[in-house]
Amino acid sequence: MTTEQTPRDGAVDRQPDWWHRDHPTFTALTGFFSGLAFVIVIPGVFAGILHLLFDDHTAEDLFPLVLVMLGVPAALITAPRTRRFGLYMLIGMVATALVVGGVTALVLWYLFQYQD
């Protein structure tokens, strides 16, 4: 049916089936990029909130509590309905951490190797 045609009398305009069910590619991409954003955004927001609520020394002491965020993908993996999303979220978190760690190591190596 094209946009110029109208449904016949009694015909119901039906939504596409793929729109109403979980699409595996959409779930995987959403989980991966959620994990990426989770690793980048959550520690920064957590540090900002801690510095707003507490003095600097207390905020620095409480910052390791941000590791509690690792419980989010673990909880998602345990539930059968969200297992796929949680797995790809964990993959996104690990991939982001590896890339950040690798780039940091490369930059530090370059700085120490070629310092004047």
Rank of each mutant, 00 (worst) to 15 (best):
P80N: 05
I91N: 08
A74R: 12
R83I: 01
L76Q: 07
V100Q: 10
F63S: 07
R81G: 10
A59Q: 04
G92L: 02
G92N: 03
F85H: 03
A59D: 05
L87Y: 07
V99R: 00
F85Q: 06
L65K: 00
A59M: 00
A75E: 02
P64M: 08
Y88A: 13
R83E: 01
V99W: 10
V68L: 15
V66T: 11
V100W: 09
V94I: 15
L90M: 15
F85E: 02
V99T: 14
L90H: 08
G102C: 05
A74Q: 12
F63V: 05
R84L: 00
G101H: 07
M93K: 00
I91K: 10
V66M: 05
A105T: 11
V68R: 07
A97F: 11
T104G: 08
R81W: 11
T82H: 05
V103F: 12
M69T: 01
T96Y: 12
L67Y: 14
I77E: 06
R83F: 04
D61T: 14
L76M: 13
L65P: 01
V103L: 14
L62I: 01
L70E: 09
I77D: 05
A79W: 07
L90D: 06
V68S: 13
T82M: 04
V100K: 03
L70N: 15
D61K: 15
Y88G: 02
E60Y: 02
I91E: 08
P73D: 13
A74K: 12
G71M: 12
V99P: 02
P73F: 07
A74G: 11
P80S: 00
A59R: 00
V103S: 09
T82Y: 06
L76R: 00
V72G: 02
G102Y: 00
R83D: 04
M89H: 10
T104E: 09
I91Q: 11
M89P: 10
T104C: 06
A97Q: 09
V103K: 00
G92Q: 06
A105S: 09
T78Y: 09
D61N: 13
R84I: 03
D61S: 13
A95D: 11
M93V: 05
A75R: 01
M93C: 09
P64C: 07
I77P: 06
G86C: 08
G102T: 08
R81Y: 11
L87D: 02
D61R: 13
G71R: 06
M69P: 01
R81L: 12
L98P: 04
P80W: 03
L76W: 02
L98Q: 08
P73N: 13
T82I: 03
